[in-house]
């Protein structure tokens, strides 16, 4: 399997944040992960990116066991991510910020620079290379972070709440961009989202997390009609909002 998490458990003190989680992602696939606040999405995200080491279970990527890898090593094997609440590097310019990612693959500036420029162009921020990150708006910042992550040339990209805080038109644009990433680079995407509606159209598979456990897997349609999911979310406005069942 391209990317595989098997039976991963992570707990903090007495609190089990992730219990026995298994996830599979095929090459070039777009997979979603949804769940209400506090379901353990962020913990799972951090476990995959190497900021947490799981208590038990294993994570493998491209045939390699990456369970105990440091975050920078994980990036080097081809998994990159964008953070939920990132400030990026506010003192750097856009070009330099994306360069940080590009330097992951190329040691020389002469090689890294064209890559960085290509990625800035790709996310649609061309012409703003010299602008400080602190001068960019929220949407531009998210795109900049995407560009930096893409500059590491990932085979799997994790997006943590990429669409949070964007207005509907921006969400549409971002969705286009995300689709374009998948089509053009063949990057597999693992999208962590609070609400399903946003990513319903682009995911081929969705995992639902609640209280640290996976309660359902399937296509978006299957998941929204799943008995377990509806039962688990019964009375949760989040879920109605997320799936438009209520209407």
């Amino acid at each position: 399997m391209f990317f595989e998490m098997s039976n991963v458990t992570k707990s903090f003190g007495g609190l089990v944040a992730n219990k026995d989680i298994s996830v599979e992602i095929a090459e070039g696939e777009i997979v979603g992960l949804i769940g209400p606040n506090g379901a353990g999405k962020s913990t799972m995200f951090k476990t995959v990116t190497g900021f947490h080491i799981p208590d038990s279970g294993s994570i493998s990527f491209g045939g390699k066991d990456i369970t105990k890898y440091e975050p920078n090593k994980i990036c080097q094997v081809g998994i990159s991510c964008t953070f939920q609440k990132s400030q990026l590097f506010s003192a750097l310019t856009l070009e330099e910020s994306v360069l940080v990612g590009a330097y992951c693959r190329h040691k020389r500036k002469s090689q890294a620079l064209p890559l960085a420029h290509r990625m800035i162009e790709f996310v649609g921020l061309g012409g703003k290379e010299e602008v400080k990150i602190s001068k960019l708006n929220m949407f531009e910042r998210k795109k900049a972070e995407l560009a930096a992550a893409l500059a590491t040339e990932p085979k799997l990209l994790l997006l943590d709440e990429l669409f949070a805080g964007l207005v509907p038109t921006e969400v549409e644009l971002m969705l286009e961009l995300v689709k374009k990433i998948n089509e053009e680079f063949g990057t597999a995407l693992f999208i962590v989202e609070h609400v399903l509606r946003v990513i319903m159209g682009i995911c081929t598979k969705v995992y639902v997390l609640e209280y640290g456990q996976l309660i359902a897997v399937g296509t978006p349609e299957e998941v929204t009609s799943s008995e377990v999911v509806i039962k688990a979310y019964l009375g949760d406005d989040d879920f109605y909002a997320a799936t438009d069942i209520k209407s």
């Binding site: 900021f51 440091e70 975050p71 920078n72 990026l88 590097f89």
Partner: peptide, 23 residues
Amino acid sequence: SRMGTMFVALKENPDLSLSLGSN
């Protein structure tokens, strides 16, 4: 240079630097 960019990046946001592959 590369070094300077990496320095400022790790000063500004060590976590993100790490996840962008900087040691």
